[in-house]
């Protein structure tokens, strides 16, 4: 009871968004492994089977390429499938379908067939999971033209962005930072209002430094910003939210103001999405920069098992150290 009054977790917000979308639009289907009776291994689809029936809430056989591929087929027929990959670590056998088909069906048929598909996948580390359950490979997908990559970082944004993804007429990979699935609660009115895609969210306003991040790293990044504020340094904190297509305008505008930028992500450094943002800052914002752009990321290693996982994940301390480094340039 009390929990309800205190608002929704991200899992509950996602569940509310799915229920909302399904009640508003009969074309919306939910499918994936264990999404029916079990309500999904993280309970994101809990209660949907009872409410919307087995036609629209489907447990699929255990086959990720088939899940993605049949979702493309049913989407081309005008349905709006929301397919769940149980963990991002198992999405790789569906990559061919996403890259070779979902992202380009509209393009290759000159708009004759389209793919209004959402693929949801819990991603990221920090929950002491077993092997293959903690990686963040969003950059692989952000590299694919035609595929939107959207990552919420709070219950309210999860609700609004998932609705937006379902309403969107093109395919969206919706990555859910499972470390903050239940980390906090937020007042999330079930208004049916979508949040804007292709737009960064400004989480803090500041003048001295821009901190750019997404997903669960919002936690460490905001903590660092808080600490800096106590020291009299104010930071703009931007949640990128839609990695691709990227809202570089907001990032550039912020860096024009602050002259300094630190990008934080838990994915590996090399070829991580921070590299794209840093490259664009070099191309379009160099003259505003008063310090080198720094990246705080996971290492170019395999994601460690739980005992060493904390060493891999960027910490508040690492974010602070990078911030101090760029602030040291006068």
């Amino acid at each position: 009871m009390m929990a309800e009054q205190d608002g929704l977790t991200m899992v509950q917000a996602l569940n509310a968004a799915l229920a909302r979308a399904m009640s508003e639009d009969a074309r919306v289907l939910v499918l994936g492994e264990d999404v029916g009776v079990d309500g999904g291994v993280f309970r994101v689809t809990e209660g949907l089977l009872d409410r919307f029936g087995a036609d629209r809430v489907r447990d699929t056989p255990l086959a990720e390429s088939a899940i993605a591929g049949l979702s493309i087929g049913v989407a081309a027929q005008g349905f709006r499938p929301v397919a769940e990959m149980q963990f991002m670590g198992f999405i790789y056998s569906a990559v061919d379908q996403l890259v070779s088909h979902a992202s380009r069906l509209r393009w290759r048929t000159r708009g004759r067939l389209t793919c209004p598909l959402v693929v949801r996948a819990p991603y990221g580390g920090g929950i002491r999971a077993i092997e293959h359950h903690s990686e963040s490979t969003e950059a692989m997908f952000a590299h694919v033209p035609g595929l939107r990559v959207v990552i919420p970082s709070s219950p309210a944004r999860a609700y609004g962005l998932l609705l937006a993804a379902i309403h969107d007429p093109d395919p969206v990979l919706f990555l859910e930072p499972k470390r903050i699935y239940r980390a906090g609660r937020e007042d999330v009115p079930d208004s049916g209002a979508a949040a804007p895609l292709d737009s960064c969210f400004q989480l803090r306003d500041g003048d001295d430094l821009t901190l750019v991040t997404w997903g669960a790293m919002i936690v460490e990044t905001l903590a660092a910003a808080e600490q800096l504020a106590a020291e009299g340094v104010t930071a703009d904190v931007l949640d990128v939210a839609t990695l691709s297509p990227l809202d570089m305008t907001t990032i550039l505008r912020s860096v024009e103001k602050t002259g300094r930028c630190v990008i934080v992500h838990e994915a590996a450094l090399t070829g991580g999405f921070g590299a794209e943002i840093a490259a664009r800052l070099a191309e379009h914002g160099l003259l505003s920069l008063r310090a080198p752009v720094k990246r705080v990321t996971g290492y170019d290693t395999v994601m460690p098992l739980p005992r060493l996982e904390h060493l891999y994940m960027p910490s508040t301390e690492r974010v602070l150290a990078a911030a101090r480094e760029v602030l040291a340039f006068s």
Binding site: S65, L70, I72, G73, V74, A76, P81
Partner: peptide, 13 residues
């Protein structure tokens, strides 16, 4: 890779 698409089309029907 087209074979799963057929499954989705058939599901729609």
């Amino acid at each position: 890779s087209q074979v799963p698409h057929a499954v989705g089309v058939a599901l729609a029907f």
